[in-house]
Design a protein around this nucleic acid. Sequence first.
DNA 1: CGACTTATCTTAGCGATGTCAAGATCGACG
DNA 2: CGTCGATCTTGACATCGCTAAGATAAGTCG
Lengths: 206, 206
Amino acid sequence: MKTGNHPAKTNAYHHGNLRQSLVDSAVAILEHSGVPGLSLRAVAKASGVSQAAPYSHFSNKQSLLAEVARVGYVRFCERMARELDRDDNRLVGLGKGYVFFALENPALFHLMFSGELAQLVNVDEIDDAFLQGYQMLVDVIAENPLTQFGSDLPHLDTAYAWSVVHGIATLILGNQISAKRYNLNTDEELVEKMLEKYFSATEEVT
Amino acid sequence: MKTGNHPAKTNAYHHGNLRQSLVDSAVAILEHSGVPGLSLRAVAKASGVSQAAPYSHFSNKQSLLAEVARVGYVRFCERMARELDRDDNRLVGLGKGYVFFALENPALFHLMFSGELAQLVNVDEIDDAFLQGYQMLVDVIAENPLTQFGSDLPHLDTAYAWSVVHGIATLILGNQISAKRYNLNTDEELVEKMLEKYFSATEEVT
DNA sequence: CGACTTATCTTAGCGATGTCAAGATCGACG
DNA sequence: CGTCGATCTTGACATCGCTAAGATAAGTCG
């Protein structure tokens, strides 16, 4: 039942690396059982310890979930970075990475942005992974301004671009928007078509 | 503790109009206690009945929540309709109504679009209120096409406009976007500025 | 080496939750 | 009046997050 990574394991009683193991177990449970299956007791059992053991490493369930979200932010940035250079328009690429991550990790994405962890994880006192992702967007917008909307309030463009991709991701996950409504085969195709159409009018800048 | 509306009440044992009363109680609890305070037992107590009474009218908690979401859709449409004609650009007005509703009813909005009720309430087999709201958007886009993005795939424009307003609403609710980051006083001001900038380039159509 | 300290983990239990089974109540209808 | 079906109550079960009390073992210091 253990997740397998106990590098500092010492004996059967003391786990050795329980904190990290709990986070890994939680991520694994979240991926194949979703949010409803993610109970503290299930996480503890998956790591081979008793129900109350997590409280030696996390003050409560929210603290564990904040760690899980942090893992999510790291993977999120990696996913966006992977897609960033595969597109002629870097903003389109960044957007694809954003939405694709959401589609590939629905439960994790929901946890990261549900706002239930907003007290612990918000933009003001956020961890580095989240800020790194936000900085990607700021940089891409800076190197390729959205002048098709005019040059007033240029700093709003980051919030706008973020809203577009976040809205697409959320609505697809909630089944309010789907590929078959637009006679497309996959949601990925829908995302590409939307981002290419609504993020691409930046040629006139040069 | 009762919500007050028992028009068909018959006696102390049989409530008379429990189904509607439960929905009303749930909406009220959701508004001033949020999702975490919305337990079936609390709803039952607020309507003055025992814990298991709701199961005579709803198969489970999700069924009740689906009813609550339906109430939310009705109010949602009313809110958008109220804002629709107050703007020169009707799309901007519709968007304001969309986001303002989310800001004014955060818990209800979250319930309506969280996707947890997606099996019960989706766009395919949705109730009239939801479809009415979607039709508002379709009509506004039809009478004022977003030709600034080109005229190919025009049916994607509804999904795009929806994504923009939904993304703005969700990110503000999750505290990822806020007015003070843009030196504005209120979130409403931020919403207006964004929608006017990114939804207004439709003059060249006429 | 041996005793003390501290972090870690277990067992037991509390209150709250969603849900179900059994039975009580009462209006409607013959 | 008597039966029936819908409605509601009581009581219970499993699970949940969380806490208290105590067991275990690793580290430290004499």
